[in-house]
Simulated scan of single mutants.
Amino acid sequence: MQVILLHPRFSRAKSMTLAGRHIVLLIAFFLMAVLATTALLYFLLFRFASPGILPFVQAKIAFSTASDTADSEKFLKENLAAMAIKLGQMQAQLLRLDALGERVQGLAGIKPEEFNFKEVPGSGGVESSDLDGRKPQAFGMSEFQFALDAMGRDIGHRADYMDVLETTLMSDKIKAKLLPTNQPVQANYNSSSFGWRVDPFTGRSAFHEGLDFPVLPGSPIVAAAAGVVISAEYHAAYGNMLDIDHGNGIVTRYAHASRLLVKVGDIVKRGQRVADSGSTGRSTGPHLHFEVRIKDVAQDPRKFLAAGTDQAKMAGLLGN
């Protein structure tokens, strides 16, 4: 490559011949100069720049940093607000779960000191890094949010389970209260059992549909279970008679009373005094004739009263 140089100071034109290696050296020198200049500018800018030097560049950097900080703070505030709402919901769920637990505890007959829902259970163990050499990892924002959501779902599932358990226990307790298992009078024995016997008036074999409890006149007669009074009247054979409906086709009958203390339609509680004993109707002396009928078929009252005695013994054992 030939280069011709022209200048007024030259008396004649001069020419210069450049080989390929000269061109390569010139390009390399140019690139090295550009790189060196750029490096020098960066060094001076970020190492020795004072507030008065390159104000535009510094302002640009400051604006970018401030924008990033503002975005980070906004993201953090939004996440904290969302987690605070979630935490509030979980606290409300825990309060409801505590109340449910106390009700279930009472229905199940568990002593409060044996299962305290408001007491934090103990925990512990060997740290994982001591076993396998792995270092514990700190929770990030996303991991913490995931754990919080998972815990919220778990609390909801447990609350649903406790609801079902409470409903079941409550249903069982109601059913137990509606079963005639409570002794209707204070008597140590019955003078006439359920089944075939010799009729005290005719002397012939007859089927006795209840139990006879000998008691003093005026002794309190109580409801064997909770229910509704469906009959309170005088009957030629039963005398002053009381029928209580306990649901599911179960009816109890109290006969030969001297006085009735409730009327038709009254709702009575288990163990409530409903009449006084006597010897009215077809009776040889003061006593209570007690029947349990299911769908108007007489049943042996002893199996119900025995179940009540067993429940009382079990409650006494649990109480001790």
Rank of each mutant, 00 (worst) to 15 (best):
Q186F: 05
D172H: 11
I174T: 11
Q89F: 00
E78K: 05
G156K: 04
G124E: 06
R96G: 04
A150S: 09
F117S: 07
P180G: 10
V164T: 15
A99H: 13
V185L: 03
D98M: 07
G106D: 09
K173E: 10
D163G: 05
G156R: 00
E113V: 05
K175F: 14
S171M: 14
K86I: 00
A99Y: 02
I155Y: 04
D160R: 08
L179R: 07
V120W: 01
D172A: 14
Q89G: 07
I174N: 12
L131S: 05
S128A: 10
L179P: 00
G109V: 05
F146R: 11
G106L: 08
D98P: 03
P136D: 10
Q186N: 10
A138W: 05
I110Y: 07
Q89C: 02
E113D: 15
T168F: 10
M141F: 13
E113M: 13
E127S: 12
D132L: 08
M83E: 12
A84M: 05
D132I: 14
R103W: 02
G140L: 07
G156S: 15
M141T: 12
T167L: 13
Q186C: 04
F139N: 07
G133F: 09
L94D: 00
A147G: 08
D163T: 09
P121Y: 08
K118G: 04
V104M: 04
E73G: 01
L94V: 13
T167V: 10
R103Q: 15
K177H: 07
D132H: 10
G101L: 01
P184M: 11
K111P: 09
V164M: 12
Q145M: 07
M83S: 09
H157I: 06
M162P: 00
D160A: 12
A150R: 14
Q186Y: 14
E113K: 11
Q93M: 05
L95T: 07
K86D: 03
R134E: 11
S72P: 00
A82Q: 15
A84P: 00
Q186T: 05
G133Q: 09
L94H: 01
G156W: 01
L148A: 15
Y161S: 13
S72R: 07
G140Y: 08
Q91E: 14
L107E: 11
L87W: 04
D68I: 04
Q145F: 04
I110M: 08
A99E: 07
L94T: 02
D132G: 14
L107H: 02
F146Q: 14
G125S: 09
T168E: 15
R153E: 14
V120C: 01
P112N: 14
R158K: 12
K177M: 08
N116M: 12
E73D: 08
E119S: 14
E102T: 02
P180K: 05
D71S: 03
A150P: 01
Q186H: 07
G88I: 03
L95Q: 13
K74G: 01
R158S: 06
